[in-house]
């Protein structure tokens, strides 16, 4: 564990807490893409298949349970909770996210570390996470005004993978033959997808103005 990865995990955890706070405090999930939440639940369910087989550390197992349970709980809330489900922008959240799932499956079958059940699912989860934010970014552009908590949620969700890139650079130079090119490439694409969001987020923060994404 290094400081970059810890910072990344804490930022990721914080983004989940901000999202839960937003839904709980405003009793609304307007501006949140259910499709991105479903993709993230799928990412965690397919990446943490080793939760019960490989024990890395208490921290690792606890964080896996937290990410799986929070993402499933948010999807349940947005789909079935009588109060919040009505506030979901169903007609704005129209990204065809099953295409992202299909492309990730094909990529995982083509590019993986080893052709085993675990590794193909792991590669699938890495590719899917790289594009999982797309429905959310499209929804933000469509819904115009972005409330603070939603903006912070997306910001921290994007920042966590940037910390992971620093972690991979650190591990590359400190651990011999550490190579995770699947994570590196996907992580770079994932962070790059946030580039314009980060730009508008910075501008809104600098001008102390409401976050506005151009349509």
């Amino acid at each position: 564990m290094n400081i970059f990865r810890l910072a990344g995990d804490m930022t990721h955890l914080f983004s989940v807490l901000v999202l839960l706070l937003k839904i709980y405090a405003t009793k609304s999930c307007s501006g949140i893409s259910l499709k991105t939440q479903e993709l993230y639940a799928l990412v965690f369910l397919t990446r943490y298949l080793d939760l019960f087989t490989d024990f890395i550390s208490v921290y690792n197992s606890v964080m896996k349970v937290v990410f799986i349970s929070s993402s499933v709980a948010i999807v349940w809330c947005m789909r079935y909770h009588p109060l919040t489900r009505r506030t979901y922008d169903k007609d704005l959240d129209t990204f065809r996210h099953y295409i992202l799932v299909g492309v990730s499956i094909i990529l995982a079958l083509l590019f993986h570390d080893r052709f085993t059940f675990r590794e193909v699912f792991w590669a699938f989860s890495i590719y899917l996470e790289a594009v999982a934010i797309l429905p959310q970014l499209v929804l933000l552009q469509r819904s115009g005004n972005v409330d603070n908590l939603t903006g912070q949620y997306v910001f921290f969700l994007g920042a966590y993978r940037a910390f992971y890139i620093l972690n991979w650079i650190y591990r590359y130079f400190t651990e011999n033959h550490y190579s995770r090119w699947i994570s590196w490439l996907a992580g770079f694409v994932q962070t790059a997808l946030y580039a314009d969001f980060f730009y508008y987020y910075f501008v809104s923060w600098k001008n102390n103005a409401k976050l506005q994404l151009p349509a």
Binding site: R5, D9, H12, R47, D50, D54, I56, N60, M63, K64, F67, D113, R114, W122, Y164, N167, H177, Y178, S179, R180, S183
Partner: peptide, 10 residues
């Protein structure tokens, strides 16, 4: 070799 390394990252 690197491929047998378990995925120790989240």
């Amino acid at each position: 070799d690197t491929e047998t390394v378990p995925h120790d990252e989240l």
